[in-house]
Design a protein around this nucleic acid. Structure first.
Lengths: 101, 101
DNA sequence: AAAACCCATCGTATATTTGCGATTAGAGAT
DNA sequence: ATCTCTAATCGCAAATATACGATGGGTTTT
């Protein structure tokens, strides 16, 4: 098959934008973020109640959003409070903005 | 495994946004779109020269962008001229805009 | 009619994503 | 120390995405 193992080196902005887009590339994750925008913050359990998905599935989506930097978790025992990471949110926002002109 | 075969019904905007995001979720496709924005239009062959990827791979990426509605192809024998689909581009733009506030 | 050119599509291999149940980890509360 | 509660992580199955070479379809040129 001979795949190209050397990844192509794209511009930094291109990579960053693709990474954010990937995080948004699933309706559940969009919906989670919309929910977070309304509530400003919420717990994992809240989302498990809202979406007809297993707890582990929700947790995995949250992990991806966290890896992309779009959200952050705060320990609020015995729960974890998730909020939008405003700094990275704004970076994503401006990347999409300048991409679309 | 018992996956939930019934797909979750999200809001129309949520689905649409996720679909556009998915199309943008690969750096090559971002780069192709940036290229199209500069040139306003281009041929498949141009892209094959620009990117170190097989012709079939480029073609596949173009197909996905076309399926998402972000580009459109025009027969310009013996080539095919690809341009950004401005109508859907603007839809995507405003969806991202309102999503990020 | 044949050759050349451009690009889509097919077939295939591998990697990644998505989802679930089960288990584990960590922090209070008893 | 034990129990309870929340949420992350593990292990697996299935679906999807990414990439390639090879083939095919449609034009244009010879």
């Amino acid at each position: 098959m001979k795949r190209n193992l050397e990844p192509i080196a794209y511009q930094e902005n291109t990579e960053a934008l693709a990474k954010f887009a990937k995080a948004l590339a699933h309706p559940t994750r969009i919906a989670i973020l919309k929910h977070l925008e309304n509530q400003s913050c919420c717990f994992t359990g809240d989302l498990v109640d809202v979406f007809p998905l297993a707890q582990s599935t929700i947790s995995q989506h949250l992990k991806e959003l966290k890896n992309a930097g779009l959200i952050q978790g705060e320990l609020k025992p015995p729960k974890i409070k998730y909020c939008i990471n405003r700094e990275n949110w704004n970076i994503a926002k401006s990347l999409f903005q300048q991409f679309f002109d």
